[in-house]
Each structure stands twice: as C-alpha cells, then as structure tokens.
Design a protein around this nucleic acid. Structure first.
Length: 494
DNA sequence: TGGTATT
C-alpha cells in the first residue's frame, strides 16, 4: 500500500506499476516510489500524450541529479509529458533512477536508441539505461478468449477484436489434430486496449454452437499457468478431490489410499527425485489426507434428526443386487482393501451396513457392496448441512479433470437418481477400482441432473466388474443401466 | 453416450 505522490498534469490515472529496485539492470522489480514528480506545463497548457506513448525507465542516474537537472538531457528528443525521479518511500532518498514519459511515442524510441547504454553520467560506472519500463511490457495486454465457435479462424477473431486496438498477436488454440479448441489468445499493444476489448466483448454475444457467451479476460499469468498445470497433474495422478466424496464409508478408504500415495511420493522425493511437481503433489495429498481425517469421521455420525433415508431413495435390498458374491477377480480393488486394517477403515465412520454381521469376513466383494448400499444413507441433502458445519471454511477445491479412460474402461450409466452428482457417482463406483473420472450430465438451463453420466476406470477389468455388479442395481423405483460407453465414432449405424 | 478450453 503506498500513495502515489506524483502529480499528474492532466488528472489521468496512471495505471503503471510504480516500483523499482533502483538498479538500471532490473527496473521495476522491488521497492516503491515515493518521489516528487516533475510534470511539465500548468493548468492552462496541459500536455497531452499519445495513446501509445511509452513509459521509459531511466537507470544509472547520479543521485545528485533531480528532475530539473535531467530534463534538459531528455528534452532534446521530444516534449516531456512526465519525469519522475524515484525516491525511497520512507527516507526520500534518491534511488538513482527515474520514469520518463514523452508526449509522443516516437520521442521515447529516439531517446532510447540515442541514450541507452550510450553514455555514462558523471560519477557512475555503468552507462545510462533508457528502456521501456517493466510496466509497459507486463503480460497484461494479452487476452484469453473463450467460447468461440470452433469454426472461427484467426481472421475471424481479429475482425472481432480489431476495433479496440492494435492486435500484435492472435492465435487460435488447437489440438494436435489442428481442430480449434474454441479459444484463443489476442495480444494488444497496450493494457488499455486489452481492457477496452474486455469491457466491450466479454459476455456480449454467444457464438453459434457455443454453450455460453463469449469469454474475454486477461490470459493466465505465469503463476496461474503453473498452478493450472499442477492441478492437471494432480488429476492425472489419481488424486481425486477428497471433498468430492465427503462422507460415507469410502471416505476412510480414500483417505487410506491417499495417505499411502502421499507417503510413497514423499519417499520418492527424498530419494533424489525431487521436482516441483512431485513436491507439490505430495504436499497436496498429505493435506488432503489430513483434511479427510478431520472432516470425515465427524460428519456422518451425527444425523440431524428423524429419517436417515432421503425421500425417493430406498436403500436397495440385498436381493436386488445382481449376484454380488461370485463375481470373480475384483482386481480393481486396491491391495489395502483386502487386508484387515482396510476393512476396519472402511467402516470407521461408525455406520455399519450390516449391523448383525461383521465385516471382518474380509470378503472384498462384500465390503464393496456394503459400501455401495451404505452410501445411499449419508450422501444426501440432509447431510450437507452437517458437512458444511464440519468445514466452516471449506478448503480450496481442486476441480476434477474430466478424463476418458482407455477403450473398455469407460462406463455409461443411466437411470441415476435425480439427486446424484459427480461425487455420488464416483462413490458408487469406487469399490470396483480406480475411478479416474465421474461425470453426471446436468441441464445447463435448470442445473438438474439428466440422470445419466460417465465413470472411467483405469483398467477394463474394473469396468467389467462394475458392470457385472451394478447393471440392474435397484435404487428406489429405478434400476441402473450400466454399460460400456459407446465409442465416439460408433454412433452411426452406417 | 464426455460440456468451460490457457500457446
């Protein structure tokens, strides 16, 4: 927080960042400006600067020179709009550098080519620096444009954006096949132009075939891009968001999984494989595991009041499960689900699907089904109030990336209960293997489930097991339809 | 019968 003290001759806001470390070699990276400003002219002769004027950083200035001393040196290249020596915020000490804006862009270019590194001012041991300030070249003039029609070309986009300024770059993002991803980058010469385009175009229209209105925003910064990459990586590593399965038997199960993964990754990292991604991923998982530990145990154990079964859904009777015992393999179940500790963990939330029986039979199938039936209880709206109290400040969500699995690993599920979301869908299929994604389709207008969705496993055996177990599974009046998803190109009979 | 995508 600092107060800009420079006088602005024409009252126009100066949106440039006013910071510098005071060293010519690296302008604008640290420190703050609190200097006096020399602005030419007076109220009767307000200087105007070009729309495309460039703010220059001047470095390697002797500390005994102030604005009035510097002015003559620079005036020979053109009319000065603003010249500001940078001073320390607290001490007022001259920092040895300045910002200079000419009224005309051309003057700045001339000054730069004539002076930059061309002469050394008295008392300095490095040549003067004259170059566009960092604030002039920040990445904040590049726009991300989304919700384009996939048919639109670079030229189409240019035509849409050219009214708002000079477009230096325009790129449609394309997949490996050359098909548009429906989004683009547009780079203007200045921040102001980019902002004008946002103001005018964001949400202004809906392209034919696009699912919502045009998106126009500043492109991700490097930091944001890094975060995005990391999140994608987290998704690929199977670190589904634990908040997506916030309650029910498999929370504990998932937690056990994550703890194991986290431990594994941490040991890998210690073994010399440390890279930022791995470190990030390991940290994420440890955090997730910890959060799960705190939240999960509490939530389902304190039912609000009254009925525990939500309206419209009846926990399926055991006989309605299509022959659960006898499906061979269950290779999809991770190893730790086969041992005793896992069996305990699965029911660690205190809700036991078979109160009269012990899960210590350790039949993985039985455990799986126990979980499937059990989830129908707590994973319903009544429980949501609970969970929100359990997480007064919900941790940041990591959106799950939608990924199709390999051929034979993707299931299409129909006749889902209306209330089911991605999380419930995933929870229902977790017992059969590693679910790499789950998606319930939602009507965009009403936000209502269309009662169908997709689940992807990382191997075909899990998918087959899930089909065997869940196809025909009765929920309320409906029976699930669970089959392999149709391949993309197989939807035409001929 | 996989949707909002970040060089």
């Amino acid at each position: 927080m600092y107060i800009k003290m420079a006088t602005l001759a024409n009252g126009q806001a100066d949106n440039a960042s006013l910071s510098t470390n005071g060293l010519g070699s690296s302008p604008g990276s640290a420190g703050h400006m609190n200097g006096l400003s020399h602005s030419p002219g007076n109220p009767s002769t307000i200087p105007m600067k070009d729309h495309d004027a460039i703010k220059l950083f001047i470095g390697q200035i002797p500390r005994n020179l102030d604005e009035k001393d510097l002015k003559p040196l620079f005036e020979e290249f053109g009319k000065i709009y603003e010249l500001t020596v940078l001073k320390d915020r607290f001490t007022g000490m001259h920092k040895g550098c300045a910002f200079l804006t000419y009224c005309e862009r051309e003057s700045a270019l001339k000054a730069q080519s004539a002076l930059h590194e061309q002469k050394t001012l008295p008392g300095m041991n490095r040549p003067i620096q004259v170059k566009p300030a960092d604030s002039e070249s920040r990445g904040d003039r590049k726009l991300f444009v989304g919700m384009l029609n996939k048919q639109q070309s670079e030229d189409d986009v240019r035509r849409l954006f050219e009214a708002f300024g000079n477009i230096e770059e325009c790129t449609i993002l394309r997949g490996p096949d050359g098909n548009s991803k429906g989004c683009a980058f547009v780079k203007y010469s200045s921040h102001a132009e980019a902002q004008a385009a946002i103001n005018a175009l964001h949400g202004s229209q809906t392209m034919p075939g696009a699912s919502s209105s045009l998106v126009v925003k500043f492109a991700d910064t490097d930091k944001e891009r890094t975060m995005r990459r990391m999140q994608q990586m987290a998704g690929q590593m199977g670190m589904f968001n634990p908040m997506a399965i916030p309650f029910g038997a498999y929370g504990a199960y998932a937690q056990a999984l994550m703890q194991q993964q986290a431990a594994l990754m941490a040991s890998v990292a210690q073994g010399g494989y440390l890279n930022p991604m791995a470190a990030f991923a390991a940290a994420q998982m440890q955090q997730m595991a910890a959060l799960n530990m705190n939240g999960l145990a509490a939530a389902p154990m304190t039912p609000t009041s009254g009925g525990s079964t939500p309206p419209g859904i009846t926990a399926p009777a055991v006989p309605s499960i299509p022959s659960p015992i006898g499906v061979n393999g269950f290779t999809g179940l991770p190893p730790q689900a086969n041992g005793q500790p896992a069996a305990e963990a699965v029911f660690a939330n205190g809700i036991h699907p078979y109160p009269a029986q012990s899960p210590t039979a350790a039949d993985p199938l039985q455990q799986a089904y126990a979980g499937v039936q059990q989830y129908a209880g707590p994973a319903y709206p009544a429980a949501y109030g609970q969970i929100s109290q359990a997480f007064p400040q919900p941790p940041p969500m990591i959106p799950q990336q939608q990924r199709e699995g390999p051929e034979g690993c993707n299931l299409f599920i129909y006749h889902l209960p209306q209330e089911f979301g991605d999380a419930e869908l995933m929870q229902m299929f977790l017992p059969f293997g590693n679910v790499i994604s789950s998606k319930v389709f939602v009507d965009r207008a009403t936000n209502q489930s269309k009662c169908f969705g997709f689940v992807s496993f990382d191997n075909p055996a899990s998918a087959q097991t899930a089909i065997q177990a869940m196809n025909g599974f009765q929920i309320g009046m409906k029976r699930l339809k669970v089959q392999l998803k149709r391949p993309k190109d197989a939807n035409r009979p001929y």
